[in-house]
Design a protein around this nucleic acid. Structure first.
Lengths: 221, 221, 221, 221
DNA sequence: TATGAATGAGAATTCATTCAT
DNA sequence: AATGAATGAATTCTCATTCAT
């Protein structure tokens, strides 16, 4: 048993180290340009060995996606946990997402890649389904928070929690993509604090659903 | 004379038909997966012929991008022209962008791909520069409208036109990406009218910069 | 008739201009690297037109060889004519050959190319035979001169004219190739006057067959 | 240990067998006409395998050149070693060179090709430099022998060793080229013993520098 | 006759995957 | 389990030649 579990730990260890190498290479080269040779070299293993752990390049990529999503969702859970008010919880999730794109920049980029261009011919459909579910669950977590907020009178009673979440999500996502991808193109971006930008856009979007007291809503850059 | 122009027209015609085929294939397969063979077959031409019109696969791709951006920017100009009030102009641009993603869905998708990972090694740098400029100019057009709106007292005097535009743009872009790309993933999206969703998110974002009268702003889905 | 001959002259003219362009391009690029496109462009004609005058790239190449050999042999004839003594005639031929490699450097290079690498699959065998004959005739002309020299007692009576000519030819050819092709490799060549070198090697070779006043050093085959 | 060396030997073996196949194909077709497909087929390997051993067609060609030059220079060394007198040493080198062109005829032909038109764009410049050096070193070895001969009074004291060597070399090379390449063209060659021809031309050339017993025939540069 | 657009066979090279050791 | 040599299908691009105008 001890032996078995040590072996299993070693196996898991090796799996992780392959994933790490793959993430780096995918990030640096993009999915297509990355070759199994590069990943093998980076992970200090023989090419054949990769196929003992992942049955194809696509499979490796999906595993990596799952990994990234796991990290992200743990960050979400902590973010929601840590927030005391509804407002803070929502804000924390935005922060968490932004934080993920910064501290796990390679994971983020690699995950972004996926949306355009992976052909799922040889892809394990079960695994794909699992990833889809993970992607959804982030939104669902946020939705629960908002529903609580509605019932607490924090948002307009007529608010559709789903719509609110999707809009906040869309705005946040758009802001992050705009900041990270277009920074190179749009010089106007050069003097903007990205985190502020992302947080403010999320704030403005969620606040537009909030109940107005007598009014002193406004936002400063 | 007649002959020259007929020949030229035919050449242009063929160029267009290659671009059309290429757009389809790039859209279906992604840039990397799309092969010149596929494009040749789709356009009913021999492989070599493609190289008479475009000097490389990258070149073909860039030409296609330019084409798409041209269409988009014409739509923007008309949108701004057609709007009577500031509010309407901004709204029209959002509509135009959304419309573009729908009526030229393949162009849109292909343009989205670009951001992740085209190898600019063999790419004509002048052409690339031109594309960058086109991409920027859309934002700039909107910025002019907003600046006018600020000076007309339509938006808070303290508003930074650039920030407003970038936020509106980010939100709109995020909304469109979310709706088009994630529709397949998020079942919660199934009963949402996409155009409404996109317009509303843009509205909410811009309205958050507007001067509040005494207040009765709200939005229903 | 006038019309016919004008047309024929024009045709011949065009043929020549294609050959000229081809020589330049073959010289600059080598046979394989030279493309019919380049030759067409250089000769200011359409690609298709080349095929009205030469039935293939190989054919064009052979025509060019013939042209070069014609020039060379005219130079030989003049060289022999101009020489007053046997010695001078032989020397003049060497000079003429060297001169050809200098003033018609591109022809010379292009002719050298042929020896290595042309596949005669699609080549007109009659034309090839003609070229072979031309190549031989230079040697034959020289041989006649030497035979005269032997009968005049200029060379050892036992001399085999054929051997003398072949040896002189080999030495001259080797010297020219060494000087032109190896100059880039052998730095030791840098301070040698090529023409002197070539003439001297030919001299030494032929003189070794000459009758020695008081001596009798000789070589038997 | 045993395993490692066996594997290495096998690898070297395969490398050699590729080189062998390549030499044959290059010889038959010339560099440009030879395709990696042909070489793969000839060596009974898959095309991709070739690229495990040589990184490009050019690389393969250069490796082959180096191999051939190595053989040639070993033959030179032995030739010089084996000769007892100066005269014999020089003669042996000529013999060795001729021998090489006969026993390694394909190597010789392939090496001859090089001089006309290898594209050095993608070629490893270090390797190219090495080849240039090897090509030179043959001449240098001979030069040393001749210098010794001069100091021993074997050649005219005024003799420039460099000139003597270059002339002997040129004559020998010319003779070999004439005999091998033109044999097909010049029927007059048919009844000549090639080796005799080559040796004699070399003899005549070197002897023309030798001190004459009772005589004083000489040549001025 | 002259043109030049179109062709398509063929070239070098890459790389995911397999499999004997 | 781990290796890494071998594979060969697939990819981009070239270019001699043809042929409708």
């Amino acid at each position: 048993m001890g032996i078995t579990s040590r072996k299993e730990r070693e196996k898991e260890q090796r799996r992780k180290s392959i994933l790490k190498a793959a993430t780096e290479v995918f990030f640096e080269k993009g999915f297509q340009q990355a070759s199994m040779d590069m990943i093998a070299e980076r992970s200090q293993l023989a090419k054949g060995t990769l196929y003992l752990y992942f049955k194809s390049k696509e499979d490796l990529y999906l595993a990596l996606m799952e990994d990234g999503l796991d990290i992200l969702h743990n960050m979400f859970d902590e973010a929601i946990e840590a927030g005391e008010s509804i407002e803070e919880k929502v804000r924390n999730v935005t922060k968490a997402y932004y934080g993920f794109t910064q501290t796990h920049h390679d994971y983020y980029q690699v995950m972004m890649m996926m949306d355009s261009g992976l052909l799922s011919d040889k892809v394990d459909q079960n695994q794909l389904q699992h990833i889809r579910l993970l992607q959804m669950s982030g939104v669902e977590k946020l939705q629960k928070v908002v529903e609580e907020g509605i019932s607490q009178g924090h948002y307009e009673p007529s608010t559709d929690a789903k719509i609110l979440v999707l809009m906040a999500w869309a705005a946040t996502w758009g802001a992050i993509m705009l900041s990270t991808e277009k920074r190179k193109i749009l010089p106007m971006f050069s003097d903007i604090d990205t985190e502020q930008f992302v947080l403010e856009i999320s704030d403005r979007m969620t606040r537009s659903f909030q109940v107005k007291k007598s009014d002193k809503n406004d936002a400063s850059t």
